[in-house]
Design a protein around this nucleic acid. Structure first.
Lengths: 140, 140
DNA sequence: AAAAAATGTTAGAATAATATAACTTTAAAA
DNA sequence: TTTTAAAGTTATATTATTCTAACATTTTTT
């Protein structure tokens, strides 16, 4: 069990988590709009996620995350947040571009690299010598 | 024209470029071994790449890169190199893990973010204040 | 040079992700 | 409350990537 999800399924889970956080509920329509796919594609993905025990979805009803599904959704969201912060705050990448990059890389960064990146960002926040040099990077 | 390649096709191109650099020639067998796929899968991918004008592949012959194909292969390899350096030299990630991460992220990092990352790595190399703090990160 | 081994190719099947089109159910309007 | 609109579902098809198995060609051995 616990086999790695595909990038597509991870995106569905993450989107569901985001919608629940934002609107309290997640509907098929909102998921398809967010991911730029058709309702039928969402349905197929939801069936797969339900089979894996990551969501609950009664016919014609809202979509809910199981505890396990929520854990995965939160994990991916966290990776996105870390990458986004690194790209924007430290590298000085434009926010839109940084977000797109983060949304793609969040599926491939390893836990080890993520941990090092988090540690690095923390260091930068604390050490003023870092910050000064980083300001220069922002302009380039 | 110039439509974005799939991650799979990018990997084939990059591998072909690497093999040519290493062995002067690239054979189906070596590509399949490198990418852990079957010869038949390689053949199908080679047909697609040949259709796109990125490689030259005569039946039962070696695989060659066209100038356009070489450009793409080099570009991906460059992205991998930059990511690998960042992960190992600045974040202090274990080399094997860093390489795996770089090999996946090389397909998704944008040119903008890559440019900022290159600039950042250059800065780190020059500024000693950076280096000191980074040594600490390596231990964590 | 003939036989055997290695390499390369093609045909057919499987999985994953998506789409379109037809249909069903639920929600909203008249 | 009936009709209409919106949302959700299912069936069928397409594309991409891979596989296995059968077949072809090339290379190596004997």
């Amino acid at each position: 069990m616990n086999e790695k999800l595909t990038e597509s399924l991870e995106n569905y889970l993450e989107t569901i988590g985001m919608l629940i956080k934002k609107n309290k509920i997640a509907r098929v329509k909102d998921i398809s709009k967010e991911l730029n796919v058709k309702n039928s594609s969402v349905n197929i993905a939801l069936n797969v996620l339900a089979d894996k025990g990551l969501i609950i979805h009664e016919k014609y009803g809202y979509v809910e995350l199981t505890p396990e599904g929520k854990k995965i959704a939160d994990d991916i969201q966290h990776k996105e947040d870390v990458l986004l912060r690194f790209f924007t705050e430290i590298l000085g990448v434009d926010k839109d571009i940084a977000l797109k990059d983060a949304c793609r890389m969040e599926h491939t960064i390893s836990d080890e690299t993520l941990a090092k990146l988090i540690f690095f960002i923390g260091k930068v926040d604390k050490e003023s010598s870092f910050k000064k040099a980083i300001q220069k990077n922002m302009k380039g």
